[in-house]
Amino acid sequence: MSLVEPMPETDAVVVVDSLSVTFPSDEGVAEVVRGVSFSVGKGQRIGLVGESGSGKSLTARAIMQLIPSPGSVSAGEIRIAGNSAALSTANAPQWRGTTVAMITQDPLSSLNPLVRIGVQITEMLRHHLNYTRTQARARAVELLSAVGIPNPPRTLRQFPSVLSGGMRQRVALAIAISCNPSLLIADEPTTALDVTIQAQVLDLLEEMSATHHSAVLLISHDLGVVANFCDEILVMYAGRIVESGPTDQLIEDPQHPYTTALLTSVPSMTEALPERLVSIAGSPPVGGVAVKGCAFAPRCALAQPRCFEDEPALRQLDVSARRVACHAAGNATWPSRFQGPS
């Protein structure tokens, strides 16, 4: 059975349904994730892109039911295949780390500096899978060699401080994958690493998710990284998904002006670089401030008065499985349709 085949909705391993995350603020509550819905199919690789503060990391933490205090999930729910109850902190022991696992951005500090690497791997196997000490150790050696650690038995006895950032991220990946999760969330797994190491870690992520049949939710601010890695892309802006669709279609024919702008700002490897790298003018709304109309309108080249009044809903375009939240998308009569952002 090929994993590349698109899966029907019923085969989804994780369904995120109208998820909202709020934080208390001076003006009441700030809604930093607003009605995010998507599903991840078995073995699928989904990319979640957006700039800093767009709510992508919080979406990941909401799935893990670990929103940092004082934030909370204010609406929506997350369900996983084979579990009728929505994910919650109460039933976390049944799924966290086993069905859904996650690696975070900073490999230098995601391992405890005072605990031997061996313990940090085996504690998970022993807790979740009830391995004996010997079984867990043998499995840990396997996992470490699978992620390309040169001398696993020695590494098991060492402390994280002797490893480089790339090696530590490999260890973190080995830990996250150790219980064969159906979904692995990778939150900016390569951001803190050197470019050469980034590619290695991504290759490894691809290999590991394939051998363990895990779906991957890759979170990144780098559309280039996501486009190379994922079957499907979700673009987030100011706490909402503004466009989603299969990678090829989304790259070839972006429907949302924000996606278009993001694509324009990815430097090309084949054509000569422009004098200055293209950037999107302006800045996104500050964390969770309620905006009237479309949050991207102030930076959008296509914006019309209507865009500042009512917020476009995320709607299905008649073409295939693509969704977009833009008044202009698919609207042939929209003024200056193909101008692109200046």
């Binding site: 670990l66 799924w95 966290r96 696992a101 500090s109 995601s110 405890n112 504690e123 998970m124 807790h127």
Partner: peptide, 19 residues
């Protein structure tokens, strides 16, 4: 971050505290 990671691993709070 390593405490967050320990929680993401699904380790019980008691283990996280003592270890």
């Amino acid at each position: 971050p390593f405490i967050e990671f320990a929680r993401l691993k699904g380790m019980p709070e008691r283990t996280i505290l003592f270890r």
